[in-house]
Amino acid sequence: MLRFILRRMLQMIPTLLAVVLIIFVIFSVVPGSFITSLMSEGRNVMNADVLAHLNEQFGLDKPLPVRLWDYLWGLAHFDLGISYRTRSPVWDVIEPRLWPSVKLALAAMGFAAVVGIPLGFLAALKPGSVFDTGTMMMAVSGLSLPEFWFGLLLMYVFALHLGLLPSFGYQAGSIKYIILPAVALGVSPMALLARTTRAGVLDVMNADFVRTARAKGLSEPRLVRTHVTRNVLVLVLTTLGLQVGSLMGQAIVIEKLFSWPGIGSLLVDSVSTRDIPVVQGTVIVIVLWFLVINMLVDVAYAAIDPRIKVT
């Protein structure tokens, strides 16, 4: 197991390097720079000498290969560089945004799992029923709902009309602030989980070993509990892992809408101001999160299904 984890961690290095290179290349070819972004408001006139000094200070006057080498050298020493915008270490910019992002991703996934898996399960147990049809219609709607629109709808209903929850904001340690953004972010994975679970359960229910167990006189609840659930879990876990992994990156719109201080909104701000070190640092964190979650899912497979061995 330890060897497996170590191997997977080593495999992350080329992935991260590729990501860093891609971002470097993209931002070196797209027009606009941090320096010009300082004047993007069209309001404050900036002194040309100040702009030149800033260019020099951040090494933006150096050739691209030199900048890339400097960055990779720093990265090898766990140094993500200095933010152009805040002039502080990149990690200091990212770190306060990390926990709110993780919290939001986990809360959204918690909502998706708690609602989506049982719904998919129950729908599959009564295929073709009104409940099944209703659930699947809901799932399709959930997958196609624009997050921004759904988030606004939640705000209008639960904050403005019912007055049950705050419409925006963040308070460490307070649950009420996370409910609406988590539901808005979790509705799409919830729908996906419901559909995946339903498909998985239907598949297992028609398998030979289930028919055999049923013929042997196993009660339906026991059949579902011992044979169906366990076999569906691998599929559900795979979906869950992929969704949790990608939620942090997907949260950009929701974070903006609810003024949630996560790294998604940090990424957007950094892209628009061409704060490349922060863009790179943020993307590295998002990619790492995705890779680690999926590694943990692989480890969990072994615990769920004894036929799967991680080596």
Binding site: G32, S33, T36, S37, L38, S40, G42, R274
Partner: peptide, 24 residues
């Protein structure tokens, strides 16, 4: 069509025919 950073970049580098902006 461009984003804010590119607008200022294009103007400052004289790479435009005309631009629309809000200025102090």
């Amino acid at each position: 069509p461009v984003d804010g950073s590119v607008l200022s970049d294009k103007i400052l580098s004289d790479n435009f025919d005309a631009y629309i902006w809000s200025n102090s």
